[in-house]
């Protein structure tokens, strides 16, 4: 007797559904391309370009960048500012840009991966006409939901962590001659990668689930779900203007807010994700 028949989670069904959704995503170029290009751009290409610009543009370029980041520098605690002041202008500019300003951009990766896969798994299923046979199968809507959730969330967290680790290695090594050593503040980056990133991925997933229930195609779900990236952009702007500083405490608050939003969105999404409702959309 399966878990489902006993009233628990049917783990075999959940695993099979998640595996199927991941397999489908990996075979879809329109979905895989952004999953490769966006992390490569944000976590490798742009940081390396910035480092190259600062290294080869000389102190003039570094001073321009440092000037642009002056509001952020001014908003930092005294101790942090004193540490940065020990670096030359080029090192200080890079440490500020790559160590502080870029931090929220790392959240775009898990957010985007979760949204793309969820849009394909939820709205794409409707669009491809593959939902009806699932509804006629002995799988609870809750298990179907869970399978799709895991198919999007696990890769999003994995890609987010791997991308952040790659970013840390790439910028530390490439900027070493200017910064003289590691410069990413662990008090910001560890909670960002381990606490905020997974929460943001889940919240983005929840938003996509809610949107997917109201649209018919993958593209519509993906585009509408893309709105969730706005808060992340807001964080970048807030830092650049000195309106906010992302320190350890801020990370905890942001993470808690993201987990709460994720729970609320998923609870709402699950409430509308039942067999009858799904069948009416066929």
């Amino acid at each position: 007797m399966s878990g489902s028949a006993r009233g628990g989670v049917d783990l075999r069904a959940v695993r099979a559904l998640a595996r199927r959704d991941v397999q489908v995503v990996l075979r879809t170029r329109a979905v895989v391309l952004p999953l490769i290009l966006v992390p490569a751009l944000i976590q490798v290409i742009i940081p390396l370009a910035l480092i190259a610009l600062v290294r080869f543009a000389g102190d003039g370029g570094a001073l321009d960048l440092a000037g642009d980041l002056e509001p952020l520098l001014a908003a930092l605690p005294d101790g942090v500012r004193a540490d940065l002041d020990r670096l030359d202008p080029s090192g200080r500019a890079l440490a500020l840009a790559l160590g502080r300003l870029f931090a929220p951009l790392m959240l775009i990766v898990p957010l985007m991966v979760a949204s793309v896969i969820a849009a394909d798994a939820f709205a794409g299923e409707k669009e491809r006409g593959t939902l009806e046979a699932l509804l006629h199968a002995p799988v609870r809507a809750r298990d179907l939901f869970l399978g799709k959730l895991l198919a999007a969330w696990v890769p999003a967290v994995a890609v987010g962590l791997a991308g952040t680790a790659a970013y840390a290695v790439v910028v530390t090594v490439a900027a070493w001659p200017l910064t003289g050593g590691p410069f990413l503040p662990a008090s910001v980056w560890l909670p960002l990668a381990l606490f905020v990133g997974p929460a943001v991925a889940l919240a983005g997933l929840g938003a996509t689930v809610v949107v997917s229930a109201r649209v018919r195609t993958f593209q519509e779900a993906y585009q509408l779900g893309g709105i969730v990236v706005l808060p992340v952009v807001g964080l970048v702007v807030a830092q650049a203007t000195g309106a906010a500083v992302l320190d350890a405490r801020a990370m905890l608050w942001i993470g808690a807010a993201a987990w709460t939003a994720a729970a609320a969105l998923l609870a709402f999404g699950l409430r509308t994700f039942h067999r009858e409702r799904l069948a009416l959309d066929l």
Binding site: A13, R15, R20, Q23, V24, R128, T130, A137
Partner: peptide, 22 residues
Amino acid sequence: RPSLDPRLSGRANLRLYAALYG
């Protein structure tokens, strides 16, 4: 409508339903 995923093999489609039907 056949309700099968065109991007997967026939066998992969059937594997999903073998799991769902226990």
